[in-house]
């Protein structure tokens, strides 16, 4: 156990303890001891699993991450109104397309975030992901073009660049 591991485990203990307290809202000794027991159990499990797969997950709660989430919420509102227009309008304006976008330049941890963001914005849907490409299905060709512009990919790559 070096210093880094201890800091990592203490961070998770604090996060889990705050999570328990917020969910329960009771401060009776019995319930608090239940909370302590489950926090300790989960931290032990996290430690054992990290020893097995060697992929410790740092909680990535940095400022760029929250800025990215805010930007993503704005994108969701914009593209939702576009899809709503498509639903109520005539279905001839649909032009479904499938494309492959490169993900090789994005760090591995952040690819999940990237693919999830693509799916979360209505109008684009990540169908498949492998080492080099993510396959995207889009309702209209415009949305593929804006993804190819690479703004989202760059911001996702920036988050993890800050973290490491």
């Amino acid at each position: 156990m070096d210093r880094k591991t201890i800091i990592y485990l203490v961070t998770w203990t604090l996060i889990l303890a705050v999570f328990w307290l917020l969910l329960s809202g009771f401060f009776k000794p019995l319930l608090l001891s239940f909370g302590l027991a489950s926090v300790v159990l989960v931290v032990v499990l996290v430690r054992r699993m990290d020893n097995t797969d060697n992929q410790p997950q740092k909680p990535s709660l940095s400022l760029p991450f929250f800025r990215y989430i805010a930007w993503l919420l704005g994108q969701i509102v914009l593209s939702s109104s576009q899809v709503a227009k498509l639903v109520w309008g005539s279905s001839k304006r649909l032009s479904p397309t499938t494309t492959k976008l490169p993900v090789a330049h994005i760090p591995e941890d952040s690819r999940v975030l990237y693919a999830n963001s693509i799916t979360m914005t209505p109008g684009t849907l990540s169908v498949d992901i492998d080492d080099n490409y993510v396959t995207v299905h889009a309702l209209r060709e415009d949305s593929i073009k804006s993804l190819q512009g690479g703004k989202m990919a760059n911001s996702v790559a920036n988050i993890s660049g800050d973290k490491n």
């Binding site: 969701i76 509102v77 939702s80 899809v83 709503a84 498509l86 639903v87 109520w88 279905s91 649909l94 479904p96 799916t119 979360m120 914005t121 209505p122 109008g123 849907l125 169908v127 299905h137 309702l139």
Partner: peptide
């Protein structure tokens, strides 16, 4: 309504994701 209006499965997933996210 998009679930009924859109022509194939993959486009219907888009309609469902509107209700899911926004």
């Amino acid at each position: 309504i998009g679930l009924f209006k859109f022509p194939d499965f993959f486009t219907r997933v888009h309609a469902a994701s509107v209700t899911d996210s926004i």
